[in-house]
Write a protein that binds this DNA or RNA. Structure first.
Length: 417
DNA sequence: TCTGGGGTCCTAGGACCC
DNA sequence: TCTGGGGTCCTAGGACCC
């Protein structure tokens, strides 16, 4: 059996924890750049504010109802997340941290465990220890645990245990197919065309038909809804397969110089993340994007992947590559809104193969990056950085409604990132 | 005027190997 | 004029997740 746990209205709950006056008020948290709504209190949901609504489209409504708005405060949320995960680890032999506010717990064979009592206990104790309201779904597969969690929320319960075929049948009978984990817009449209409206309808389809329309992933989901586990709970790999830093500009950018500054910053961030997880990258992908929402503008989405002669994680090397790349793909005449840098071909630091071209400069740069890390660790992120990574940052992100760093120091922020 | 920023996995098709 | 039959690896693109 598996449990799926998540924080209710995660970012709003984190803000409320340090500002109890926000209880019972309409509260929303905005994305980076304050562009759209990414977390809503129940009061905001009741008002009709939708996930990912653009801020400028709901601004008036929010003002009329004296709603409180926050910019994203990730250091705070990451810190609260870590506290939650530390708590959850005590209730299982294997914890899979799935996202900043979600985790799966392996519960094993259940002969000796009263699942209802266990779920109630987790819910109460986590609330007492962290102040965070959570919901728990329990089921024989990860997909059913996830579904149980969502069903619990609909029933306004703290937990829901689906441990018998009868309980599962009852819940999936009127569970909308679009709310099932793994069904996005494309599959929803396909399934609707096949006459599927609920999880129960989907389960009744022939496995081969599902596989044909939704590949092996859909087939696995189908199996899981029948109680046959296809997804194994596991530690999320310490080394991810790609590391990215990207951001939209606060205003349109047309010149090359701003791109160079932004890309330098992203390259430095990627390099730092690589060093923190003791990895190196063999490839660097750099991209630029215009605003896809603005159909009046000419669109340009250039992307380039550069293979480096040897794996690297030092800021100098990655910045140099990123700058060459951006100069190659940038074109005048476009209004760019976003740029990003992604490292792939990630390998452990110890397994680097040097070649004829690796030289003295390379090892010097590694040392220099380590030294910069030490200084930045002590005095704050960005204390020491390359000149290419600018000081002006006229394109930097909007964060007009940021709350305080209630729990974290500068050092913690580096870790959180 | 104004619409995050990360990730994952799978598949098809091309490059290349013998 | 005629021109094999396997493999593997990599990448781009599409689907999904939070």
């Amino acid at each position: 059996m598996f449990a799926h746990v998540d924080i209710n209205n995660c970012y709003v709950s984190c803000e409320r924890l340090f500002n109890p006056a926000l209880e019972n008020r309409i509260v929303v948290v905005l994305s980076n750049n304050d562009g759209c709504v990414i977390a809503r209190s129940n009061e905001a949901k009741a008002l009709g504010i939708k996930m990912a609504d653009a801020e400028f489209m709901v601004r008036k409504l929010l003002q009329e109802h004296q709603a409180v708005m926050f910019s994203s405060n990730y250091p705070l949320y990451a810190d609260m997340s870590a506290r939650l995960m530390n708590n959850l680890a005590r209730y299982t032999y294997m914890l899979m941290v799935y996202s900043i506010d979600e985790a799966f717990l392996a519960l094993g064979n259940i002969e000796h465990l009263d699942l209802e009592k266990h779920a109630a206990k987790i819910s109460e104790e986590v609330m007492r220890h962290t102040g965070l309201p959570i919901t728990i779904g329990v089921g024989p597969t990860m997909s059913l645990a996830k579904l149980a969690n969502k069903a619990a929320k609909k029933q306004k319960r703290n937990y829901l245990v689906l441990d018998t075929a009868a309980k599962i049948d009852t819940v999936i009978r009127d569970f909308p197919i679009e709310d099932v984990w793994g069904v996005g817009l494309q599959y929803y449209q396909k399934l609707t065309a096949l006459g599927v409206r609920t999880a129960h309808d989907f389960r009744e389809l022939e496995p081969d038909l599902v596989r044909k329309h939704m590949t092996v992933q859909g087939w696995r989901l189908h199996q899981e809804l029948w109680g046959k586990a296809c997804h194994a709970i596991r530690d999320i790999a310490e080394r991810s397969k790609g590391i990215e830093s990207s951001q939209s500009f606060s205003t349109y950018q047309t010149g090359l110089e701003a791109m160079e500054e932004a890309v330098s910053m992203h390259a430095a961030t990627v390099a730092l993340k690589l060093r923190q997880q003791k990895s190196m990258a063999l490839q660097l992908t750099i991209y630029l994007r215009t605003n896809k929402h603005n159909i009046k503008h000419d669109q340009h989405y250039p992307v380039i992947t550069v293979k480096m002669p040897f794996a690297a994680n030092n800021t100098h090397q990655l910045t140099r590559v990123a700058l060459q790349a951006i100069r190659a793909i940038w074109q005048p005449g476009y209004k760019y809104l976003k740029t990003g840098v992604r490292a792939t071909g990630i390998i452990p630091e110890g397994e680097v193969q040097y070649n004829l071209f690796s030289n003295y400069t390379h090892s010097q740069e590694q040392k220099l990056s380590s030294l910069m890390d030490e200084i930045n660790d002590r005095y704050g992120r960005g204390t020491l950085r390359l000149a290419a990574d600018s000081f002006e940052r006229s394109w930097a992100m909007k964060q007009a409604y940021l709350s305080k760093q209630y729990t974290t120091s500068w050092k913690d922020i580096v870790t959180a990132l």
